[in-house]
């Protein structure tokens, strides 16, 4: 059974529009989607993570509909935003403690996991690795990346391991690095 199911899922409000999009993503699967604009790529990533609700069509994360059971969806999907995180190295343990508290992950286990992931993501700029580590400490089954940096594709794929991965991109060449 697919971990992420989108059927003609689209989003529209007065300022933004995305989709329609249909896809199935199996557990452990990987898909990299390219869109005409950065805004559309972000909206689709937010829909896939259960943060933005589709205005037409349907999205299921696991067995859950984000419009009705968004809390369950957010336990399954981890979202990594495109924007770099401006954080001093000294603030990193505080950031991990904050993320662990929000996802109710045991604090010492989260810090140990974060240290391990830091080693695995060696060579990746902290501004991009910290949000990914923050998402991974909650051990989500699905990782959604909004326009990740293709230069760090190898490190990201190594850190994500066997989890399902959906990445959105604004250029086909960037998407190729994640397939």
């Amino acid at each position: 059974m697919p971990l992420l199911r989108m059927r003609d899922a689209s989003f529209a409000n007065t300022t933004a529009r995305a989709g329609p999009l249909t896809l199935d993503l199996e557990p452990g699967g990987r898909v990299a989607l390219t869109f005409a604009s950065s805004q559309e790529a972000t909206i689709v990533a937010l829909m896939a993570a259960g943060i933005a609700k589709a205005t037409t069509g349907s999205v299921f994360i696991g067995d859950y509909d984000p419009r009705l059971q968004s809390v369950h969806c957010k336990r399954i999907a981890g979202f990594v935003p495109h924007e770099p995180l401006q954080l001093d190295e000294g603030d990193f343990p505080r950031y991990i403690a904050y993320r662990a508290a929000l996802w109710n992950v045991e604090a010492t286990a989260a810090q140990a996991c974060a240290r391990l992931l830091c080693e695995r993501l060696e060579g990746m700029h902290e501004a991009f690795s910290y949000p990914l580590i923050g998402a991974l400490i909650a051990t989500p089954q699905l990782i959604v990346l909004d326009r990740p940096q293709p230069a760090y594709a190898a490190q990201i794929l190594r850190a994500v391991e066997g989890r399902a991965l959906l990445s959105t991109h604004a250029h086909p060449s960037n998407a190729a690095a994640f397939t």
Binding site: A49, V71, K74, R75, Q86, Y98, L102, G134, A135
Partner: peptide, 14 residues
């Protein structure tokens, strides 16, 4: 505070 907003929006909270 964009990153806090994104963390809170993606966290399993009502």
């Amino acid at each position: 505070h964009r990153h806090l907003d994104r963390c809170e929006q993606s966290a399993p909270l009502f």
